[in-house]
Nucleic acid binder design. Structure first.
Lengths: 218, 218
DNA sequence: GTCTATATGGCGATAGAC
DNA sequence: GTCTATCGCCATATAGAC
């Protein structure tokens, strides 16, 4: 049973909206929002272009939905670890493991978020609020303060080099995210094919936490 | 003397092409290539839209020119330092100083490059060749090999923790570039205004090289 | 070389049948 | 809810006067 356009009919499980969102997710991530075409999203979802507007009204609202979902699965788990009462060493190990694991499966997410924020600065507000139900702008500062106290205490005790919490967080996340953000450049400059890049990331899974913690030795 | 459109006439110094390129540079960096309008570039250059096509034929070629210029001033100086016969410690200090200095004056460059590469993957070839007259694809591997020998020797001598050259370079550049790439997110999450972000970068100018070198202590 | 005016095409969005 | 067909805008690109 084929439809007129030669495609198999969409599974009628009633989850059309979800399938559109998934398709949009995939297309926005590989093309960027500006480069994405509603037609391509429709094709990927196996539905007609008009249906996208039926469910999401406009491309811009569809983009909002995808952006929220991407940031929502990238950020809150990290904030939770950083704000917990684990020791610094455990926080570092867990954040590295979590991020590299997640990014290996979603390699285009960080570059997509970056390119969104340059072209739609107003979306920064959305980044702060209503991300997976948590308000980053409200949650992040307490996390930073917790971390700051923890780092100061360890510095006083002489068991850690002193470092401000902001620098700690940016360094840690930068080391995790940067290889994925800059992947096309890195691959090209160092002539890495897909396999060698994967090996490169595997190495980081094993060594990055140790590298970072070594920098914090007193 | 005002022209019909109420603007001052462009200085007739014959450098129209240069002024268009400068304007395009500014507009592409703040809007992203897809978000940039030829009209806005023309306004910024103080000339008519048609002139952009007279000099650059199409938006896409204009984008090529700007992209090459941005990468060209960002990358070759770093490659030169990394490939030199300086000691590791000096290389790290110089790269950090150079990058943070340059980026403080061109804060939007890295995010622009990232967003270019997601939307025009074919531009990776341009990244490799013909960047400021140097062929990154040809130059980078020898630089990596030089660095690799240097790092191995120091590791054997027990004066440095062992680390592959690729990891060394990506960690170093990531720590320099990431704060600028992720600036909107960082500013929002940590509630930094422009001034506090500048202070944040000033701190890194002083401490980042030490942080990185500390991680390499045996 | 620089301008005004116009053509061309692509894409988001809607109307309306089923 | 899902489709086909079409509208209308807007940005790139060109024609042609000066």
């Amino acid at each position: 049973m084929l439809k007129a356009n030669g495609q198999h009919p969409a599974p009628p499980d009633g989850h059309t909206e979800q399938r559109i969102l998934d398709a949009a997710h995939a297309v926005f991530l590989r093309r960027g929002t500006a480069g994405a075409r509603m037609q391509e999203i429709a094709d990927e979802a196996g539905v007609n272009k008009a249906l996208l507007h039926y469910y999401f009204r406009s491309k811009s609202r569809l983009a909002d939905a995808v952006f929220g979902r991407v940031v929502g699965q990238l950020l809150p788990p990290v904030l939770e670890i950083l704000g917990s009462d684990l020791e610094i060493e455990d926080k570092v190990r867990r954040v590295v493991a979590l991020e590299l694991e997640h990014l290996a499966r979603n390699p285009y997410a960080p570059a997509y978020v970056v390119s969104e924020l340059i072209q739609h600065p107003e979306r920064v507000r959305q980044f702060i609020k209503t991300i997976a139900g948590i308000d980053v702008g409200r949650v992040a500062p307490p996390v930073r303060d917790t971390l700051d106290r923890q780092l100061r205490a360890r510095a006083r005790a002489g068991t850690l080099r002193p470092i401000p919490a902001e620098q700690f967080v940016v360094n840690l996340l930068g080391l995790c995210l940067f290889p994925f953000i800059a992947r096309p450049m890195i691959s090209a400059a160092l002539q890495m094919d897909e396999k060698r890049f994967a090996q490169f990331i595997e190495y980081r899974k094993k060594e990055l936490a140790a590298f970072f913690l070594a920098a914090l030795r007193p």
